[in-house]
Amino acid sequence: MSEYKFSEDQEKEIASILAKYPFKTSALLPLLTLVQRADQVVSPEAMVAIGKRLDVSPAYVQSVLSFYTMYHTEKVGKYMILFCINISCQLNGSDKLLEHTAKKLNIKVGETTFDEKFTLHREECLAACTEAPMMRVNDTYYGDLTEQRIDQIIDSLD
């Protein structure tokens, strides 16, 4: 296993993250997020490096990471589409729209497109129920979805 190196900018950010907490293990989720936003994935090497930085075992890091759904240990597409299918969205037709989206991307739900541009996941409630049906593409929320709107959104992403 090769050694994971944080970039200079990341080091700066790590320092400011650590400054927030009296105990450094609190920085675990923020550091995992930091790594994932840079690499789109959290590699075993990164887990070792984060563990070392925070004085916890790599197994502990993996244990925590695997508890949360937002971390990926396998590479995902440039655009991560999280499609809400929970109750308010379901009532507003999300199942069909999700199917439509999958067809549009020519993948199954849970898969990544061949060009590694899109990954499509079913997602539980994202707290935008009054805009149901909705989806989150990377950090952006898109509500009041229709088939046309989905097509437009996907086509507008490059």
Partner: peptide, 28 residues
Amino acid sequence: IHTHLGAGAYICGEESALLNSLEGGRGE
């Protein structure tokens, strides 16, 4: 006051799970 982001776990809304998560643990 600082912001702290979770990472996808409904249970972290339960106050004691939230504390575990904020301490860098599994949100149990």
